[in-house]
Amino acid sequence: MELLKVTHLHKEFGQNTVLNDINLSVEKGEVVVIIGPSGCGKSTFLRCLNGLEEIQGGVITISGLPVEAGKRDITKLRQKIGMVFQSYELFPHKTVLENIILAPTKVQKRDKEEATKEAIALLDKVGLVDKKDYYPRQLSGGQKQRVAIVRALLMHPEVILFDEVTAALDPEMVHEVLETMIALAKSGSTMLIVTHEMAFAKAIADRIIFIDKGDIVEETRDVKEFFNEPKTERAKKFLKTFAYE
């Protein structure tokens, strides 16, 4: 079942074309990993998908409904699209639990008790239930990021976008976050992941998308082969930057 469809997406900042002509279709339950050099437009691509950026051309649909920035019903659509940011962006004035249940109770008008119960169950899964009454600044980066993931999950999104979620973390904390994401992938969530962690990409991806200079240069479901023997020169060159002779 096709969940997310992007056709002829074009995005520019002023004179600068960031995304040229992106076409992509994501099935339910699929884990798509987007990689590419810094500044290739992969983060901008994610931001377009939930209407944080206005696009200059093309159509994005989720479950058949168009995503358009600035439109009134964009909040409805965003509830179907979860997003986790590089810098966590927990709300500093709310506790872990309050952070998590804020949107479900205020936006989806769900029962507070029910939301709390689910939040605690999810926190338990990621090993943070004892931190539920802490404020974000009392947590480590890895813990914050896991809370941010739980916060996105509690909205029951149909697809979750991960924007370089480990880029701001200390190396020893990267693992705990990636573990959480792998568990999530196994449970059948639809995920779009932008990352620089190649080993992780290899482990989690059903499909790899390689973007360079605003275009999809290579796209494959044969993940192993992509990392061993990419088809395009540009992907080869990019993967080489991660290797040490």
Partner: peptide, 24 residues
């Protein structure tokens, strides 16, 4: 990005202002 994070949770402009931005 705090605003964006609230918006990406499906909050309206007003909810974002009231629950997330204003208290801070």
């Amino acid at each position: 990005i705090q605003t964006e994070s609230a918006l990406s949770l499906g909050m309206s402009d007003f909810q974002t202002l009231w629950h997330v931005i204003l208290p801070q």
